[in-house]
Design a protein around this nucleic acid. Structure first.
Lengths: 151, 151
DNA sequence: TCTTTACTCTATCGGGTTAGTAGAGTATAT
DNA sequence: ATATACTCTACTAACCCGATAGAGTAAAGA
């Protein structure tokens, strides 16, 4: 399960990416636009800032901005930051490997084998997708859904 | 994250698959072999039985057996049973779709788009792997690791 | 310099879930 | 009859998640 934190973070970052180059966005405005509890969003943005993904400006006219170009921000980084390793089990993680206590012989553990495949597939997607990619995808989808709307 | 229940379930099922055609396996023996707290395993096996994945025999000489051939038991079924839908967010689930409250226009939601890809990749793997497949994979890995051992 | 704006940071909290345990009950084979 | 082994309900301790409160700090503008 993706945590709300990670989900809100991606939403907020996408909104910030759409604003690139312009004025900073305020927590309150971002919260309203994306339907996120403001104080909760605050904690999330602070975290992203401390990770070096966002920059902030205080006082009047302040708010948050991306610290890097959208093409330099990968979804994998965000998800890992809030939800930890991508692998469903620690012993299948590439970035945060941990042996499991039960498990006599890791080399012949079926769970690990299957979960390693899942983690690889997930990593391929999330580490291979940047905010810029995702924006482009969303745009394409939006255009397609306008051509053949559901309702 | 894969829950311990799902993890123990897969381990136990693999052990049972290796026993196919023979006598039933007792909870206590399975628990010892796989390093699982016996009472916890008990609840797990009961669940699998009620799902029709296992059969049981009571009394002396009793225990658990697979209710189907290993090639008819898919990992996806097991994981979903214990941990719910594979999708990281409910709005990206195929088998248990749920709209999310925040989210003005689902068609242009980047989170959903990315997570749909993750869920599809995960489903391809877990629904495409049976106990029989996994056993075979483990065997291959074991042979390979004997030829070029790590220690 | 004073005031307003808006981010910063720590602390807290209720509720839900997870992992695991206890124990009484039931079916079956010998 | 009796030992064996599954069945089922209930419970609990620990942990984590989503969310909130509130005091503090930095910056800009009047």
């Amino acid at each position: 399960m993706l945590s709300k934190k990670a989900k809100y973070a991606i939403k907020a970052l996408l909104a910030l990416a759409a604003h690139e180059g312009e004025e900073p966005l305020r927590i309150a405005d971002l919260a309203r636009a994306e339907q996120i509890p403001p104080k909760f969003l605050e904690a999330i943005l602070l975290g992203l800032r401390n990770q070096g993904i966002l920059r902030s400006r205080k006082g009047r006219g302040g708010g948050y901005l991306l610290a890097r170009r959208p093409a330099q921000i990968h979804l994998g980084e965000i998800v890992r930051m809030f939800d930890g390793p991508l692998a469903p089990v620690p012993c299948a993680s590439q970035t945060a490997y941990q042996r499991c206590a039960d498990c006599r012989n890791e080399a012949v553990c079926g769970v690990r084998l299957a979960m390693k495949e899942v983690r690889d597939a997930t990593a391929r997607i999330l580490d291979g997708t940047t905010l810029a990619d995702l924006r482009a995808q969303v745009d394409r989808t939006a255009r397609r859904s306008r051509r053949s709307p559901r309702f």
